[in-house]
Design a protein around this nucleic acid. Structure first.
Lengths: 350, 350
DNA sequence: CTGAAAGCGCTAACAG
DNA sequence: CTGTTAGCGCTTTCAG
């Protein structure tokens, strides 16, 4: 009724209590569905809530107990693999009391976003940024339930959900080597992201690549090529590779974004047929007929779902860490084939 | 020190005050950079904060004043155009006190996510979902600053940021008609999303399309074709179109996702050269050489930036609504050309 | 310049 | 079954 000009004067539990002629506690019980409320009172209170358009303040509530909010920190939303994870997480939360909020890393390394989530007292945090310090995360995890996605850490305080990068890479290499490829390039990111101790997926893929090459004997003339983390830099790097002969017969990119960059370079050089290309993540684009990229499916949605479930378990009281490893699978498409005969006619020039 | 097993016992302002031997108010002043604190005290307090690893609770703080949080509701993160907007918003907030949180719509129409944001008492809300009821939003906007993105509403209580869909469509049609196209198909979503009153961009594009066709005289044998909102359904619809002759000489898709679906069908039917294709949004994929899609650039990042700025203005006290219209521009690529001679050789079969 | 005290909106004992 | 009463962690007058 009193529609004063001042914005933001939200209606409180006290307003409802007065309107319904009951105590605040009674209202609280009604909105929490707590026991000990007579049907009559419940009805009156609900009427008042409806009437006043009352909505409880999560902030105030969380001062006492839970905020029923789960936070997800992500490095960059442009990454299609992340959206798979988010999808899985959202779906896992459907119908529950919990709400997911996503905090995008503000350019830097994700600390800011993670801290923002922690400061807002979310009930649990999922972290995706691969570059956050493990010890720092460990510290955070003592205060709030944490699940780290996409890293092979074995923390005592937080859980992890990660793909089996060794298995995924082996599938790729068995496939390529079995096809007869020997001049294979592994396109990956800068050394900082593949350091052995970091638990980084890219590091594991790199080492599994090297092992596979080694196991194949000296006949495999494979090598590792570094590039940036963007499609553009992968494109440039690949262009450099194609500037000199002999070309590799196959390129295994550490993730689909790099593969897309490499593909761009292949198209530029009209080399689609000569060089097999394999990515990692099986991003939705990979399936597009104009792209048709062979790629490793990491089951991102399932990872998102698992992360949510583990977080809820921790919130429910679990203390022992758990580490989930999700089995990946290779999806073969037109971008790869026997050496010198890639069936990617769909995108080759005539 | 007292490392009890119980999780979640965060250090409070009182702990800091005790450690520094001052009052809570003093600590509050220090962390807020408020005036009236001696350098000596500031130093001691900061030391204690450091020592205890204290972080103020945003929840508690927001009970009194601002939460310094801006909420962004999005329908589906898979949409590349949205990530452009998010990018712009994140960048606009860099270095400010404000943190962006994104609430993904939980399958339904976005009401849940928007309410979740409101319940968390964010200082302002940006809404992207095109299907939320205008009156409902109007109501919400009386309680909290709201900016709606991508709709042509003229609300008295919330701001809008939207592309000039009429201008964008005109550019497309001038381009296509100028090239000599007459059998043009406009591929758009279901009628509910293009209803005249809804202020929907797709509705405006549709009507601008019809106007352009009309203005071109009876010679333009253009028509509108409906499809779903996914790439898959656009692919199926386009396939149906290609099953019968004569083919259209050009297809103008209402957004890039539909265009990608249409492109898939074109590839399937080996029709890349025969049919020109134009999208809308200039999604990053459009520029990929394997796609090379002509598309209208809506300047998503700028829209995100504008939305943030308007929200901050409202938070700062502005009451009069403002409506920003962003000028789009057509980016011509290989997917389009004169009728019967599309220069999209990059993806045609030999 | 500093501290005491009164809330912000809600929940959780505890009495009646 | 219902209401009273302390707080949750922080900010903000307002006296000292």
């Amino acid at each position: 009724m009193s529609e004063s000009s001042g914005r933001r004067r939200s209606v409180t539990i006290l307003d409802v209590a007065r309107a319904a002629g009951v105590s605040r506690a009674a209202v609280s019980k009604v909105i929490r569905d707590a026991a000990g409320v007579s049907p009559a009172m419940r009805a009156r209170v609900n009427a008042a809530i409806e009437e006043l358009n009352y909505r409880p303040s999560v902030a105030a509530r969380s001062l006492r107990g839970a905020s029923y909010t789960l936070g997800l920190e992500v490095p960059q939303l442009g990454n299609r693999f992340l959206t798979q994870i988010v999808d899985g997480a959202v779906r896992a939360l459907e119908g529950s009391r919990y709400q997911l909020v996503i905090a995008p890393a503000d350019g830097r390394e994700g600390y800011g976003a993670i801290e923002a989530l922690a400061d807002r007292r979310v009930d649990g945090i999922m972290v995706v940024s691969p570059r956050v310090d493990a010890a720092w995360l460990e510290r955070l995890a003592r205060d709030v339930p944490v699940v780290m996605l996409g890293r092979h850490d074995r923390s005592a305080h937080y859980d992890t959900v990660v793909g089996d990068d060794v298995a995924g890479t082996r599938q790729v290499m068995e496939y390529l080597l079995g096809l007869g490829h020997r001049r294979i390039v592994h396109l990956t990111e800068e050394a900082a992201l593949t350091a052995p101790g970091s638990g980084s997926p890219h590091g594991l893929r790199l080492r599994a690549f090297e092992e596979a090459v080694h196991a194949a004997g000296g006949s495999a003339r494979a090598r590792v090529v570094r590039t940036g983390q963007t499609e553009a830099s992968a494109r440039a790097t690949m262009s450099g590779l194609l500037a000199r002969r002999p070309w590799p017969t196959a390129v295994f990119a550490s993730h689909d974004q790099l593969a897309l960059g490499a593909l761009a370079a292949l198209v530029d050089h009209d080399a689609g047929r000569a060089v097999s290309l394999v990515g990692y993540d099986n991003t939705d684009l990979a399936a597009h007929p104009a792209i048709s990229l062979t790629s490793v499916d990491q089951r991102g949605p399932e990872m998102g779902r698992l992360a949510v479930e583990m977080l809820l378990e921790r919130i429910a009281g679990r203390e022992e860490p758990r580490h989930h490893i999700v089995a990946p699978s290779l999806v073969v498409r037109g971008s790869s084939g026997p050496p010198g005969a890639t069936e990617s006619s769909a995108r080759d020039g005539s």
